[in-house]
């Protein structure tokens, strides 16, 4: 098994806004870094510097404009996440790569327990075990039991975000992408989320995370990537 899990090479993302007369918007340019297995890469940078866009390119929510995102699975051949077929991405999302988005688009009429359970069933876990793990994860993230069968569309911002986090963390994927997971949480809930992320990291999950709180970031990132939009990005080791 290779000790590197992800190698991002000269990655750029531009948007071509056809509705605004083909206006070009640069999200970020020429970003390169490598992530070792089990490492925690924190992403920093000003608002609009391309942090979320970078994570979305890795997850294929955005199409990469230039560059490569070479992913080395624990078994099998390297895959360029920037150019591999959609079907391969669907598969990786089910089993290998988790994502917590900055904003949670709740699925209407699916209870929060079902959302989290579903994430595991897609990974091939059997129904009862999946439900059990889902309930445990929701409890650990301080979602009260009486909300388990309620729809997240009716939840508070913080509760929604914790369901969003639960469905990503419950899977114990190889690679976890997280975009400001704690931004809408109070301190106790935020701390628990960080603890959970750490528990996964201990088990070998590699993490790429955006945190708007610099203290949080410096507290636990192994490396920090500072995004500067059109000017590229700098990466440095974080001596904690």
């Amino acid at each position: 098994m290779k000790d590197i899990i992800l190698e991002v090479r000269n990655l750029s993302k531009n948007f071509n806004l056809h509705l605004l007369g083909d206006k070009a918007v640069v999200a970020f340019q020429n970003v390169s870094f490598t992530l070792k297995r089990g490492e925690f890469l924190g992403i920093a940078g000003k608002s609009g510097s391309g942090k979320s866009s970078l994570i979305k390119c890795i997850y294929r929510t955005y199409l990469t404009t230039y560059g490569e995102i070479i992913y080395y699975p624990d078994n099998g051949n390297p895959i360029d996440l920037a150019s591999c077929p959609d079907e391969e991405i669907i598969d990786l999302r089910r089993r290998k790569i988790g994502y917590v988005s900055q904003f949670f688009g709740a699925i209407p009429r699916v209870s929060c327990e079902d959302i989290v359970t579903q994430a595991l069933i897609q990974q091939g876990v059997n129904k009862d075990e999946a439900r059990n793990s889902a309930q445990n994860m929701l409890s650990r993230l301080l979602i009260p039991k009486k909300l388990f069968d309620a729809y997240p569309s009716t939840f508070s911002g913080g509760e929604k975000q914790r369901v969003n986090i639960a469905q990503a963390l419950v899977k114990e994927t190889e690679l976890l992408l997280i975009d400001e997971p704690t931004a809408s949480l109070d301190k106790p809930a935020g701390d628990i989320v960080l603890e959970e992320i750490f528990r996964l990291k201990k088990r070998g999950t590699s993490v790429i995370g955006i945190f708007h709180d610099d203290k949080e970031l410096r507290g636990f990132a192994d490396k920090i990537l500072v995004m500067e939009g059109e000017k590229g990005a700098r990466i440095y080791e974080n001596d904690k």
């Binding site: 294929r60 955005y62 199409l63 959609d86």
Partner: peptide, 10 residues
């Protein structure tokens, strides 16, 4: 053609 979230967001 693309993944649903990609078609909707990009």
């Amino acid at each position: 053609s693309g993944l649903t979230d990609q078609i909707l967001e990009d």
